[in-house]
Amino acid sequence: MSRESRASRGEERRKGQVNMAQDIPRYNRHELLRVIGEEGQKRIEKARVLVAGLGALGSLISILLARAGVGMLRIVDLDAPELHNLHRQILYDEEDTRSGLSKAQAAAQHLGRANSTVQIEPVVGAIGPESIAELTTGIDLVVDALDNISARYFVNDRILELGIPYVFGGAVETVGNVMTIIPGKTPCLRCLWPDPYAVADHPRASTVGVLSAAATAVASVQVTEALKILVGRHEDALAGLLVMDLWHNQFHVAPVAPDPRCRCRVYVPKAP
């Protein structure tokens, strides 16, 4: 562009004849997507989402959902940021590891700076039988970023009771899983893991490590699943368990059928 044309365009902007960058709606690039659109964006802005856990998965999930304009984010974690978290927990920085703030408090500050229009509800605590009811009150969707099995069973059983969707995710080593659970329609976590003892000794990042990109890849898929649900496109959700190994270039959606013995079957609507 020539100096003259740049000057001319600047003059037009000053006169308000062309959109300046700040005139473009904040969520324009999502609204332009055929799968979201303006109507979908309005739904996102009205949604109330619980992000359960604020580690590697929860960091990216909460950042992307906040920046996407989700109406209310309730974020929960018991821990405080530590230096060895920073390679993959991209919500925090070195100052957070010195501040004494919990992950939930530090996250709320960062998310508020990223999008001040989103209502952030930080909760410092664990997910268990005493807390799960309050944590899920008024929530439309739960996105899982937990690091243990038992808390996931509490979440799974609660979302079945409430009839709200749940996006399960997990990552360790170079591998990740994602499964979208819609009560009454899809298998639940207990269909996948019916026996808590069979999975209790699962590999942990503290012993076998975790590739930062594997965790953020899982979180990105989870956010995509969450947005599909929030805009009402349930039919686009993952059908089965996504199993991916980033290092070994493996990406599979494994079919998972509802277990007829599972408790989630009682939530399936009866045929008229």
Partner: peptide
């Protein structure tokens, strides 16, 4: 027949 490791880290 499919066999998966449980992936539960967060």
């Amino acid at each position: 027949v499919a066999v998966f490791p449980p992936i539960a880290g967060g």
